[in-house]
Design a protein around this nucleic acid. Structure first.
Length: 429
RNA sequence: UCCCCGAUAGCUCAGCGGUAGAGCAUCCGGCUGUUAACCGGAGGGUCGUAGGUUCGAAUCCUACUCGGGGAGCCA
């Protein structure tokens, strides 16, 4: 019976065949322990000389790390095994012999591991992270579809900047200048006017020379955009959304979180409502706690960490000064010097995982903002059109996938939260 | 772009002015319950590159290259 390690518990007492790779091997003279992995799990296969004969035993003794093999044997429950099950081997076939596998079970440096990322992802820890990434993506899709959202896929190649500050990757589009997208938001706004509630999920690119544990050059964002949503609706959706993602991973990935050594008691508390601070309150709190910061300054990483560390769940900071936020954000009608926006800061120092806002829906105000920010009106005609033909209040946000995964997994660095990270000065493999 | 740190065996590191070292990996041998198994043996090096100081440089100095951590910017 051909099966996988993840299903092995259903075959106790039966003879099964597994297809996988040799993760590790220990020998003890006349008994051999093969640690075999197949992507669904890890199992110890026991080869006893007296049971299998000298020829097979000798072949197993010569198997090398990461050789691909097909193993047959009888499934046993065994308390001495870490997974609870073992396989008593009856036959082993070599598919391909692996020679001089570079990644050993000992410690390795970051540079070496990143150079061998194509092999590093075979280790149990990296497998657990990628599994959780997949479940985070599934939780996102399932939640948003249940809430009536339609997925739209905005373009990667764009004619110009969506915002005015950050640096973009430049490329040629035949005879035209083009850039890799840094946000699908403006396209999602157009799609929200067609479909009501929409979201995009895909890669974005920032050509910034950021070199910290929170930055990737190529990273993934989920960007929901909702017609007829205002600031309060936006915040309520965000806290339900983030809570759902965290609870989904807790439910579906207990084994993976254990492999990562994650303290899940902190994640269990992530449920609505999330604490909220206005920008004004946050500035005052920071000033009261010895930080040198004035109203009108943007928060630095140490400020975010200090603010977030007060809470056991993510915290909203809302209503930032208009002057330090993006041009398309809706001013607070009571206080036009601030905008109806929010940042969501993850606990435990993981920083900003969401940036969101209500968008300007008034044509004249948006056009005025274009002039103030010296943006080329001709390239944004289509974006202004959205405010000419049935404009409605709308809001949306962007969630950084790798930062969210790094937080849920308790990672030191976002580079482990994506299969093949693109980092400053690193494009290989 | 700025600040700090690093580069020695396939890997992780020690050595910090006087003959190049250890553990793991590899190969050989031993062990019937191992858990990054263990025990014995063997092979394995232009000490990142280029200059300089010195009787003598892996070691001290300068520049460069590559990488790591952080800041700014951002998600």
């Amino acid at each position: 019976m051909r099966t996988s390690i993840g299903q092995i518990g259903s075959f106790v007492g039966e003879t099964v065949t597994l297809e996988g790779w040799l993760y590790n091997k220990r020998s003890s003279g006349k008994i051999l322990f093969l640690q075999v992995r197949d992507g669904t799990g890890l199992i110890q296969c026991v080869v006893v000389r007296n049971e299998v004969g000298d020829e097979l035993f000798e072949r197993c003794r010569r198997l090398t790390q990461e050789s691909s093999i097909v193993v047959s044997g009888v499934v046993r429950r065994d308390e001495r095994s870490q997974s609870g099950y073992e396989l008593s081997v009856t036959d082993v076939t070599l598919v391909q012999e692996s020679a001089d596998y570079p990644i050993t079970l000992k410690e390795h440096g970051v540079d070496f591991l990143l150079d061998h990322r194509h092999l590093w992802i075979r280790t149990p820890r990296q497998r657990a992270i990628l599994k959780i990434r997949s479940e985070v993506e599934r939780a996102i899709s399932e939640f948003l579809h249940e809430q009536g959202f339609t997925r739209v896929d905005p373009p990667i190649l764009t004619p110009s900047s969506c915002e005015d500050t950050t640096e973009l990757f430049h490329t040629q589009y035949f005879d035209e200048e083009a850039y890799l997208t840094q946000s699908g938001q403006m396209y999602c706004e157009a799609a929200a006017m067609a479909l009501g509630k929409v979201y995009s999920m895909g890669p974005t690119f920032r050509a910034e020379k950021s070199k910290t544990r929170r930055h990737l050059i190529e990273f993934w964002m989920v960007e929901p955009e909702m017609a007829f949503y205002q600031h309060e609706d936006n915040l309520a959706l965000q806290e339900q959304f983030v809570s759902h993602i965290v609870q989904h991973v807790l439910e579906h990935c207990p084994h993976e979180l254990e492999v990562l050594g994650r303290d899940t008691s902190k994640l269990s508390q992530v449920r609505p409502p999330f604490p909220r601070l206005t920008y004004d309150e946050a500035i005052r709190w920071l000033q009261d706690h010895g930080h040198d910061i004035q109203w009108g300054d943007d928060f630095g990483a140490p400020h975010e960490t200090a603010l977030a560390s007060q809470y056991d769940r993510p915290v909203f900071i809302e209503r930032y000064p208009t002057q330090i936020k993006a041009f398309y954000m809706q001013p607070d009608p009571q206080r036009p010097e601030v905008v109806l926006c929010d940042d969501l800061l993850a606990p435990e120092g993981y920083g900003e995982i969401i940036g969101g806002s209500e968008r300007i829906h008034d044509y004249d105000l948006l056009q005025q903002r274009f002039e103030e920010h010296d943006l080329p009106l001709d390239g944004y005609g289509w974006y202004l059109d959205l405010r000419r033909y049935g404009s409605v209040p709308h809001a949306g946000f962007g969630l950084g996938l790798e930062r969210t995964i790094a937080w849920i997994c308790g990672l030191e660095h976002v580079r482990e939260a994506i299969p093949f990270p693109r980092l400053l000065y690193r494009l290989y493999p």
